[in-house]
């Protein structure tokens, strides 16, 4: 992240304000969406998480400058995502996969 001339910074500041707007709109959407009672719970969850992910991506990409960041940082985050996904998916899978003749609920 070198070579931040004043021009670029000023341009970046405009982008920050735009992202701010997007985040506010996103928040309002999440809240509104939660007032609509979909019959499908998965849909409700999916929508809420989708909006949250979009918002989070904007924060990460622009506020945290990830969009112009270096490869080594992508690499670190790539590992982290992999392990994070492993932790999530495998624990859930393990809790869902029951033995054939289980007495457990």
């Amino acid at each position: 992240m070198s070579g931040h001339g004043p021009e670029e910074i000023k341009k970046a500041m405009k982008i920050y304000l735009m992202v701010f707007g997007i985040l506010i709109v996103g928040t309002i959407f999440t809240v509104l969406a939660s007032y609509i009672h979909f019959d499908n719970f998965a849909l409700t969850v999916g929508l809420a998480l989708l909006i949250a992910t979009v918002k989070a991506s904007f924060v990460a990409l622009y506020f945290m400058h990830l969009i112009e960041e270096r490869q080594s940082i992508y690499l670190v985050l790539g590992f982290t995502t992999f392990f994070f996904a492993g932790l999530m998916i495998l624990t859930l899978w393990a809790s869902g996969d029951k033995p054939l003749y289980s007495v457990m609920p």
Binding site: A94, G96, D97, P99, S102
Partner: peptide
């Protein structure tokens, strides 16, 4: 711990 067969295969 009473894991199912699929996950334990994994």
């Amino acid at each position: 711990t009473g894991m199912g067969t699929k996950i334990s295969t994994f």
